[in-house]
Design a protein around this nucleic acid. Structure first.
Lengths: 159, 159
DNA sequence: CGCAGACATCTCAATACTAAGATAATGCTC
DNA sequence: GAGCATTATCTTAGTATTGAGATGTCTGCG
């Protein structure tokens, strides 16, 4: 058992690769490792409440933004179109979410929290936020700000 | 269709969360987004050769490090114990890898590249490295060095 | 020596997704 | 206003991966 996630490249001694490519590969490796480590912790945390990270992401988004079209939610949590249907189905079955018609576009559907869903988020979100804070506390506030800037730039330039 | 990966939190206006937790959450979000963006590209790149990112990671590790025990490979590419068996099985079936007995420990097995496996890595790795270099080129060399340092610290302190 | 526990790998069932295509509604453009 | 490309969601089948437990092996201790 143990650990989901991405591949990892040998960090040293890579013949036939320029030094700039080697640096980029190393960045990709440490990024993937950090992501995997945090994902592990966050996954375990929300699993205590029977939720996937993706499911938690949906609940949290709806809590902070209010009802959203399925497509908006999909783009926000980064799943496929089939995936959002599947995830919302499950949350609806558990009584945490409901689908609502969209008056302006009859193809579209809103997802909205039920009372139970709202109550769940209010109960677990603060703990989860605290867990994340704790997990990332190896970086000072200044360092975190720097990292946010760099990763934001990176994310935009890759996409 | 479109896009694998993690959850994402509403970045602004989160009641009942301290500013330090809010910053940590934002870092988690941009990290996850950057990771998802790069993963998308890298996955598409290796898929051209019929490989998963995890499969590619195994081939690449063995190429640069030589034969490794399955457990070592598992820790390196971050999959479950069942996962490494499954992945190695598939690569063996395709003739890219072979299992070898370990003289010192009869429970353990080495994974080693076959000639075909070595040839494949030599053919596709340089392109892949170049693709990663290009994908991360939105950050200057100096910025990349900074990011590597921060993410390495982060990864260690989380785990 | 002989056994208890820790390990390394494998097996197997369950699951959270993805990809491709179906359905239906929208909105341009002529 | 009729068609055609586009968009929003859903359906279905397939898959990569996990997690729990089984098996065989090693190691240290009494």
């Amino acid at each position: 058992m143990r650990r989901p996630d991405v591949n990892l490249l040998a960090t040293d001694e890579m013949p036939a690769v320029g030094t700039d490519a080697a640096q980029a590969l190393k960045l990709w490796v440490v990024l993937a490792r950090a992501h995997a480590a945090i994902t592990d912790r966050a996954t375990a945390d929300v699993a205590r409440h029977g939720l996937t990270l993706a499911e938690f992401g949906i609940l949290e988004a709806l809590y902070h933004k209010g009802p959203m079209l399925l497509g908006e939610v999909q783009r926000r949590i980064l799943v496929s179109s089939g995936g959002i249907t599947y995830l919302v189905d499950r949350l609806v079955q558990r009584g945490l979410l409901e689908r609502r018609l969209c008056a302006e576009d009859r193809r579209a559907r809103y997802a909205a929290l039920t009372e139970a869903g709202r109550a769940l988020v209010e109960r677990i979100f603060p703990e989860h936020a605290e867990m994340i804070r704790q997990a990332l506390s190896g970086l000072s506030s200044t360092e975190q700000a720097t990292a946010i800037g760099l990763l934001r730039t990176l994310g935009k330039s890759v996409g």
